[in-house]
Design a protein around this nucleic acid. Structure first.
Lengths: 174, 174
DNA sequence: ATGAATCTATCTATCGATAGATAGACATCC
DNA sequence: GGATGTCTATCTATCGATAGATAGATTCAT
């Protein structure tokens, strides 16, 4: 029996919900019910919703960093591929939005600490792409790639058509 | 004195809020207070929140259609420019997210009618780009352009850097 | 027996939604 | 041309449900 700490279970449940509903669409009770505890126990680990969601965005960033690895060790063109894989898995395996894409689109309605942490996620991706070795030609602006990936996720999910994700990554018209 | 109908005033206030917070982040009372009426009066015009937000997405789509015009009358390459202008104005003039970008990213948490209307917005843009005369070379996949614009909006707003929007629209790295 | 973690129970505030009253505009009938 | 009825739009007041948050008792492992 794999024993996952309550804190991690809470973050897992909260991330799942936050990536479907955004900041305001889920409650402490929702998360507590998912885990099988009481909402007051969630407050014990994360006093406020702001704390919870900041931790969410922080863990999300750390996991992405771990998975992306050191950009300086990559083959030319591998950086964009690794970042794209992150988003492709969100769509095809997890069937969820990017946490920071969703939070970011609500930036005006987020507690400052959460907004700051979300911004740090984006900056991390941009820095990673900047640091990764460029393919000799046709390498894409980091902001362009990241924007495209966030948008492709929204598009493919809203139109319920995963192949739109790959369409959106292709350069030229069919 | 220009007399705007209560219905329109309600939609104006609701759109403003929805484009900051998403579906769950604003209430009938918020909207009512903005307009200067009671929340029950908002319910009179839009019985449920689902009705209100569906009307929001519908009006948003109609206004975009009006502004974009008939795609078949455009010069080559003008279609993408017109669509891009829509999003650029959202960022620089309105300082808001795209309503359907935000709603779309929450599609799992939306009433079906709202989700359907949001999907119709995206399909409309894709059809428009398909129907518009292509520039001879380097014309972009409609899905790619739309994804990029939605993502660029999120990115520029979250990082509080409007020039990222233009970066994201450029093809190649700096 | 101390400290961490969870519980029960509750609070205040707000949510979306509804009922019923009211005031004014407008039409229609005698 | 009054009187009557209907429609529109708003109001006051309230509903049950749920939000985030807190206090204090209890459980349990070290």
């Amino acid at each position: 029996m794999i024993e996952t700490s309550a804190r991690e279970q809470i973050l897992d449940a909260a991330e799942k919900r936050a990536r479907m509903t955004g900041y305001h669409g889920f409650s402490f009770r929702d998360v507590a019910d998912d885990v099988g505890i009481k909402s007051s126990s969630v407050h014990y680990h994360f006093p406020t919703k702001s704390d919870l969601c900041e931790a969410l965005a922080r863990r999300y960033t750390v996991r992405a960093v771990d998975r992306l690895g050191d950009p300086r060790t990559l083959a030319p063109g591998e950086g964009p591929e690794r970042v794209a894989a992150l988003f492709r898995d969100a769509l095809l395996i997890e069937d969820r939005m990017c946490l920071c894409g969703l939070f970011g689109s609500q930036r005006d309605a987020l507690p400052t600490q959460v907004a700051t942490t979300v911004a740090a996620f984006f900056q991390m991706i941009l820095d990673y792409l900047d640091a990764a070795p460029k393919a000799s030609r046709g390498s894409q602006n980091p902001a362009a790639l990241l924007a495209r990936l966030e948008g492709a996720l929204i598009l493919a999910r809203t139109l319920n058509n995963p192949s739109l994700f790959e369409d959106a990554l292709r350069e030229t018209a069919a």
